[in-house]
Each structure stands twice: as C-alpha cells, then as structure tokens.
Simulated scan of single mutants.
Amino acid sequence: MSSLFKEVDYLRIPYADIKAATNNFDIVNMIGIYHSKNVNYYVYEGELFRSGKRINIIVERILGIQEVQLLEGVSVISRFKHNNIPTFVGFCYDKYLGGYLVSECEFMESLEQILNITPNPSIRKSEYRIRENLTCYHMLQICLGVARALSHIHDCHAIHGSFNSYKIFLDKDFEAKVVGLFENPEYFPLTRYTCYVDPESECLNIFLTPKSDVYSFGVVLIDVFCQQHAADQSWHYLEFPEIPEIEYTHFDDNIRKQMNSKARPFC
C-alpha cells in the first residue's frame, strides 16, 4: 500500500483546487451522473490553473469508493496515452468527501444524455448538441472511437470493468472519450451489478476480464443504434437480482433510413 501511495503521490491535487475549478460542484457544471449498487458517480466540467496556465478539465467525482481502489485505478489511468481517453491530470481522495479523478479535455457531453436514455433535468443541455443531429455516420464514428479506447486499455493489460453509456463522453466533433476507473484485472473482483456486466462473471462471481468489457461494449452498441436502453434497470435495487434479458427492440427510424442503400451518403 505504501509503495502505491508513493507511486502516484505526485499526481495529487488539493481538494480546494478541484472545488474551485467546478465552482463548488455547481449543478450548472454537471455533465454526467450515474448510480450503481455501491457507488455514486458524477462528472463535472471546469477550469483548473495548472503549470502556469488555465486548462479545461472534467472531474469524475466518485462517492463510496475506497482509497486503495482509487489509487490502484490512478496507477493504471496515468499510463494511458490515447486520443479516445482524456489526458489524466491528477486525483484527490478524502474518506469523507470521496475520490476525484481530473482529466484535461475540451467541451464534453455525456453520450447517455445525448441519446436521451434516461433524461436527467439536473444536467444542462447544450444548445448545439441535440439528438436529431446524430446521423448513422456519427454513430459509427462514436462506436469506432470507443472500440479503439477499449483496445488500448486491454493492450496496456488493464480493463475498464464498469463500462457503459454513462462513461462515454463526446467532444464538439462527436469524438468519443472513455472515462472511468480503469484497473488491473487481478485487483478487480466483480463488485458492480449492472445490465452491462456479462452474465458469466455475474453467475460465477469471478474476476472481470477484457471479455467482460467486450460484452459491455455490445450492450452499448444496442444503446447507440436503438437510441434507447438495452435492458431494464429496475433490477439494480433488488437484493438478489436475476440477470435481465435484453429486450427485443428496433433501430431508430431515422437511423434505419440512413442505413438504407438509397441513403449511403449519410453512412
């Protein structure tokens, strides 16, 4: 544990700086929100004064996380250099205030909110990012960017482990950015229960693997191209949840038209 502290200590950012950067975690700055069984997850945008200049950042605020898990995640995240993963800046942890991951990034908006899967009035809406602007081409671009990010994560001998539409953000050019607490598989037993987790890991209660991320990616594809949630989330709150079946659904009518052979210019 002490060696892990030393390894990432240079990346620590004072809580006061993060609080100021997000305007005291103002709801106006909130761009994403997600609740799982044990963790509450919020994402904010802001500006941080760093190395003599002001940079645009996103802050992942994770309530309910243990310090060792956050530090293990930081040791992995700090290694990533990829266009579809925000550049990591630093972190903060307080046993009463939770964990915070800070990444450098320009304008971002949650894919989950863009698809309008579970509308949240607390999250501000962009005046130029609306669901109707999404074309088949944009969706393919988003999915390819996400796939490249996951491939890079796995090439670095890590996994995402809690991958879903809530952990995908888009910049102004619809380029996907994958966020989250990436970890080494050996430190990551199955502790999350969502419809994105592969049934084998959940049934056997085993450690998650890169294949688990691939399964989650498949569910995200359904979210994207059907523009609705792939499974019922109400089972999250049951004490002994059963694995939900993915609902039979259909492609959004506008996307279906764009995928038609007569509309190839859109794709």
Rank of each mutant, 00 (worst) to 15 (best):
P244V: 08
D253C: 11
F182K: 05
N83I: 08
V39Q: 03
F107D: 06
I27D: 06
E247G: 13
D26Y: 11
A147P: 11
M139Q: 10
L190T: 14
D171N: 15
E106S: 14
D252H: 14
L97A: 14
Q66V: 06
R192P: 04
R129H: 08
V28D: 06
I57D: 01
Y42W: 09
P199F: 08
E47Q: 13
T118K: 00
K125E: 06
I31R: 00
Y100G: 04
Q233P: 15
G90F: 05
T249P: 08
V220S: 01
N120H: 03
V146M: 04
Y96P: 04
G90W: 04
I65T: 07
S212A: 11
V224S: 00
R192M: 07
F49L: 06
E245P: 09
N133W: 03
Y137T: 06
F88D: 01
E132T: 07
R148L: 12
Q141L: 05
P210F: 04
I85V: 12
G64S: 09
S51N: 11
L150D: 05
Y187H: 14
N260T: 11
N56K: 13
V89H: 02
Q233Y: 09
G52D: 05
S201A: 11
L144T: 12
P241I: 12
H154E: 08
D17T: 14
K19V: 10
P244M: 02
P119C: 03
L97C: 10
H157N: 15
A231P: 07
P185V: 12
Q69S: 10
K37T: 12
L134Y: 06
H35P: 04
D94N: 15
I243M: 13
H138Y: 09
F88V: 09
N205Y: 13
C195A: 07
L111F: 00
T209N: 05
R50S: 06
E67T: 04
I57K: 01
P265Y: 03
D17R: 15
H250S: 15
G218S: 12
M1F: 13
L71N: 02
P86L: 01
D198W: 10
I57S: 01
F188Y: 12
Y34G: 00
E7D: 12
F217H: 07
F251G: 03
I58Q: 02
R79S: 05
S2K: 14
D173T: 13
K81I: 14
H35V: 09
I114K: 00
H82K: 09
P119F: 02
E202S: 12
I62S: 01
H35C: 06
V219G: 00
I18Y: 02
G180R: 04
H154R: 06
M108H: 05
W235V: 13
N83V: 10
F25S: 01
E127F: 06
N260H: 15
R12L: 08
C143D: 02
S2D: 13
L70D: 02
D94E: 15
H35S: 08
N120Q: 04
C92P: 15
E104F: 04
G73I: 03
S216Y: 05
L115H: 00
L71T: 09
A147M: 05
N24Y: 12
I243W: 05
D155Y: 08
M259S: 12
G99E: 03
I153C: 01
Y34R: 03
L144V: 11
E106G: 15
N83A: 12
T118I: 01
I123T: 06
N164R: 01
